[in-house]
């Protein structure tokens, strides 16, 4: 089961260390892809991984994917027109020239971005943050870094709640954001109180840890064992990775 209580599926039952490894290697591989065919296969591969991350609503997945990739709009608005090396011109509007090279480049970039985020989505949505962090630690990531990420994920919601509560408290007293000094000052106060409380809390959390015999060591579950299922996932991604590499080299 994933740490966040998600559904049980193929990806969620595999070893978190393997998933972290796949996440890193797959993203790197895709980032270096140059050819259009390889980028397409990469996207398909990420789609396969995503399909294995269990029964998920397609619409939710798509909307998440598009939200993360909304910056692509700007690439499409600028890149196809802004190729400095004179390429094959397709269309000209005054001084704006649309080139084949520009279009190709934008397409590959978009495919890569979509493939990387979809792959990451598949891995992260099928396992809790803490599980992945434990996996990273199992792979030898520095203990302090893992502890830092762990505490951050734990307290981000607490800070979020505090922010929401402060906003509510402002609203029930008739606060309405306008473009004036009062609004600015109120927001500054809000930011300030969140910072101060965060610092305060960090101190108290440390105290609480000291009270329970904390001596600098952080404990996360790391007694993983590779299973048959993991082998399957490893082979699958290896095959996908090879396919992408070969296509890209050709």
């Amino acid at each position: 089961m994933s740490a966040l209580g998600g559904t049980v599926n193929f990806l969620s039952r595999t070893d978190p260390r393997l998933k972290v490894l796949i996440l890193v290697l797959w993203s790197f591989l895709l980032a270096f892809v140059q050819s259009r065919a390889a980028a397409w296969v990469g996207l398909v591969g990420s789609g396969v991984l995503y399909a294995f991350s269990g029964p998920q609503s397609l619409i939710k997945g798509l909307s998440r994917l598009l939200a993360i990739n909304s910056f692509l709009i700007f690439i499409w608005l600028t890149l196809p027109f802004s190729f400095s090396t004179p390429g094959t011109e397709i269309y000209r509007l005054g001084w704006l020239a649309l080139t084949q090279e520009g279009l190709d480049f934008s397409l590959i970039l978009s495919l890569k971005a979509l493939a990387i985020t979809l792959g990451a989505l598949a891995i992260t949505s099928s396992s809790g943050v803490f599980e992945l962090l434990a996996g990273a630690k199992g792979l030898g990531a520095p203990e302090k870094l893992v502890a830092l990420c762990q505490l951050m994920t734990r307290y981000i919601s607490v800070i979020g709640q505090q922010y929401a509560r402060s906003r509510q408290a402002m609203r029930v007293r008739g606060f309405q954001p306008r473009t004036n000094l009062h609004t600015l000052r109120s927001y500054a106060n809000l930011a300030g109180i969140l910072l101060v409380r965060g610092l305060d809390r960090a101190e108290r959390v440390r105290s609480a840890m000291l009270c329970r015999g904390y001596n600098g060591r952080f404990w996360a579950k790391t007694d993983f064992r590779l299973k048959f299922l993991d082998l399957g996932l490893a082979y699958l991604t290896l095959a996908l990775g090879l396919w992408v590499t070969i296509l890209d080299a050709a």
Partner: peptide, 27 residues
């Protein structure tokens, strides 16, 4: 001295309840 803080959010810092309860004994 089993000290329990006024604000439980300060005390519980681990991902899951089991992890948090195990933290002290592990130390």
């Amino acid at each position: 001295m089993g000290f329990v803080f006024q604000d439980a959010n300060d005390q519980l810092f681990c991902p899951t309840v089991a992890d948090d309860l195990a933290f002290g004994p592990l130390n």
